[in-house]
């Protein structure tokens, strides 16, 4: 599913250059649930951005679902983000002026190929699967943190992606809500045969993944083994 070879990423800010990823290699199999762990600043989120096609300024080779990301123009990269990959962010990033249902079906606006037939029905189905069908008409401000993250998961699954990238999805939640969110991610991804990469600091969450990959100083120091 994912093949990364000799990935380098540098942040250049005025006179300071930070070499965040230093020749990183990684392979992820289809349907795998992978935990990406490491200290803050080790390059986990940066790696996620590169894999998700949000960051194009790197060196090395990155292939996701058979697509070599380097060199794709904005249109092709946007299409890749729309069709192949989805994100769940630590701070949810739901749009406050839209209802829960509208947030879930947000990606339908950019569905040029009309891949998603009946977007409202699809959004309601996903909300049902995350247990929030009765909150479809609510605004994000009326939801708890756990509920917001479950809506974000439903939004991420709306386009039927092949890869789900979750950047500390439980980081802003207490343990109870964090656990329910993780349950949602694992159950839904397994049901849909999704490949999932979860960035986390939480060892309990990492323990529930198929494989744990540790990153330190921009390299994979523990490639992990399938559990």
């Amino acid at each position: 599913m994912i093949r990364i070879r000799d990935l380098h990423k540098r942040y250049v800010d005025a006179e300071v250059t930070a070499h965040v990823l230093r020749g990183l290699d990684l392979e992820v199999q289809p349907g795998e649930l992978l935990a990406l762990v490491g200290k803050s600043g080790s390059g986990k989120s940066t790696l996620l951005n590169v894999i998700g096609g949000l960051d194009q300024s790197y060196e090395g080779e990155v292939q996701v679902a058979g697509v070599t990301l380097r060199g794709l123009d904005d249109r092709a990269l946007s299409r890749f983000r729309h069709e192949t990959v989805s994100y769940v962010f630590q701070l949810f990033h739901l749009l406050p002026h839209l209802t829960v249902l509208e947030n879930v079906r947000l990606a339908a606006w950019f569905d040029e190929a009309s891949r998603i037939a009946g977007p409202d029905a699809r959004a309601l189905e996903l909300l049902d699967r995350v247990g929030l069908a009765d909150r479809a008409g609510s605004r994000p401000g009326q939801l708890s943190g756990g509920e917001k993250q479950r809506v974000a998961i439903a939004r991420a699954l709306f386009t039927r992606p092949r890869l789900l990238l979750a950047d500390e999805p439980t980081g802003a939640l207490d343990s109870e809500h964090g656990s329910s969110v993780l349950n949602a991610i694992t159950e839904l991804s397994r049901a849909d045969g999704l490949t999932v990469i979860v960035v986390t600091h939480d060892d309990q969450i990492a323990a529930r993944c198929d494989r744990v990959v540790r990153i330190s100083d921009g390299r994979v120091v523990h490639p992990g083994e399938a559990t």
């Binding site: 949000l54 904005d74 946007s78 299409r79 994100y87 990033h93 947000l106 990606a107 606006w109 569905d111």
Partner: peptide, 16 residues
């Protein structure tokens, strides 16, 4: 800017 970021992440192009 967050909203625009979300749209971009969901598949919006720069021209969109």
């Amino acid at each position: 800017r967050y909203e625009i970021g979300v749209m971009r992440a969901l598949g919006a192009t720069r021209s969109d």
